[in-house]
Design a protein around this nucleic acid. Structure first.
Length: 420
DNA sequence: TCATGGCGA
DNA sequence: TCACGTCGCCATGAT
């Protein structure tokens, strides 16, 4: 009771009453139900994947030992691996870390030796096996065959949730082999998994907050913003934008959200630092209000010490007063990113509550089971499928009112792989 | 317990 | 010139 008085006052003082009482507090029940319901893991699929992975890993280990001309070392030990590559094989070390020579993927990719492909492939498959196969086995409930993640509501600085034991927010999707992992997460009998995800929500928030006319026009008219950005930064007519130009522009758009630097973009987009810098200049020339918005955010964070998200969530930026450039620059990037990432998390939390309540009030058997930052996943009986898709779409699109519309993509299937 | 590397949005 | 994109979780080896 003593704490109640003190904390209640603080909540009011910081204008957090709405966020606390209307979002975070009711969300607890929603998260509890999601954790309790869980999700089925098909152990037959898991075991099948395990056998395929184990077989290929075994042959890769032989290949690596052959090419190294030695089998008395642990491939998983970066220290031992570095000794083989840069000692025994005489390859040129390019990057150091605190413990010695780096053997990260981007370093390996620069090396010219047949062992590199085998190592990268080994790393990829070993990661899938240890983290997603062996790791998942350990947390499946033996009686029910389901896994129950633990969503942490009060952990991140941006308002996002985090997921652990198992982490169901980082299940592979980018590579074909990794994506296979998703086949083991299945809907129970007579059900489907429905996935509904916000399309480019952080970029839309950037358009909303910056009020950049070019971005607002694009989103109001359903344009392809990555292609549009490509057309501008490459000074090329929209019809002549290639997929490679679009890919670079996409990296720029994402980079902006994270508080970009020429160096970071160069590394990410695979272009020269000079080229990256030119992209950024052209980007800001095209969308001048975005630069104003970013500058204003950093200035405001410096002046008042904090920023707020759409729903009034606070983040403080003590790094901005540091005498050290690196720490200060980190604070500046975080200040550019927080309102976007934080507001996106506000929006999906509001959407979760609306979906949760709508399913309950409509007496649906469908259950909200997962949230993956910009995506909601529902386990739905076949016969409820179409109604629930509509319910997800409407509640997510209308969670909040912005200058520009929110767009939601939906897919479904018997397993998570097919629901993408 | 820390550092590295790698998976996601 | 230096630094060098946000937020997380987890497996592994070295200490």
């Amino acid at each position: 009771m003593e704490l109640n008085a003190i904390l209640s006052e603080k909540i009011q003082e910081k204008n957090l009453s709405d966020l606390y009482f209307n979002v975070e507090l009711p969300l607890i029940r929603c998260l509890f139900d999601m954790e309790r319901v869980g999700l089925t893991v098909d152990l037959n699929v898991l075991n099948e994947l395990n056998e395929q992975l184990s077989a290929e890993i075994a042959t890769l280990v032989e290949t690596i030992y052959d090419l190294a001309g030695e089998k008395d070392f642990n491939i998983n030990s970066n220290k031992q691996l570095a000794d083989i590559l840069f000692g025994k094989l005489g390859l040129k070390a390019s990057k150091k870390n605190k413990t010695g020579f780096s053997v990260s993927a981007d370093v390996l990719e620069e090396l010219e030796h047949p062992i590199v492909d085998a190592l990268l492939r080994y790393r990829q498959l070993a990661k899938l096996k240890s983290t997603y196969i062996d790791g998942m086995k350990q947390v499946v409930n033996k009686a029910t065959g389901r896994v129950h993640t633990d969503f942490k509501q009060c952990l991140t600085t941006t308002g996002r949730l985090s997921s652990n034991e198992p982490n169901l927010q980082n299940i592979p999707v980018r590579t074909a082999e990794g994506r296979e992992i998703r086949k083991m997460f299945v809907a129970k009998d007579g059900n489907v998994l429905i996935s509904a995800d916000y399309s480019q929500i952080e970029l839309r928030l950037l358009a909303h907050f910056s009020q950049e006319p070019n971005l607002i026009e694009a989103y109001k008219n359903g344009r392809d913003v990555h292609a549009l950005t490509a057309s501008k930064i490459f000074k090329t007519p929209l019809e002549e934008v290639t997929s490679s130009m679009r890919r670079s522009a996409k990296a720029v758009n994402f980079g902006i959200i994270y508080g970009i630097s020429g160096f970071g973009l160069a590394k990410n987009a695979g272009v020269s630092q000079k080229q990256a810098k030119a992209f950024i200049e052209e980007y800001f020339a095209t969308y001048p209000k975005v630069r104003e918005y970013m500058d204003q955010n950093v200035a405001l964070a410096k002046q008042q010490g904090y920023l707020t998200s759409l729903a009034g969530r606070l983040r403080y930026f003590p790094e901005l007063t540091s005498p050290q450039y690196t720490i200060r620059a980190f604070g500046e990037r975080a200040a550019m990113n927080f309102p976007l990432q934080g507001s996106a998390s506000d929006i999906i939390k509001i959407a979760m509550l609306r979906v949760y309540n709508a399913l309950k009030e409509g007496n649906f058997k469908s259950k909200l089971i997962l949230q993956v930052h910009d995506e909601l996943i529902v386990e739905a009986p076949e016969e409820e499928r179409e109604k629930v898709i509509e319910l997800l779409r409407e509640n997510m699109k209308n969670a909040v009112e912005l200058t520009i519309p929110l767009d939601v993509g939906v897919a479904y299937g018997k397993n998570w792989y097919d629901a993408k």
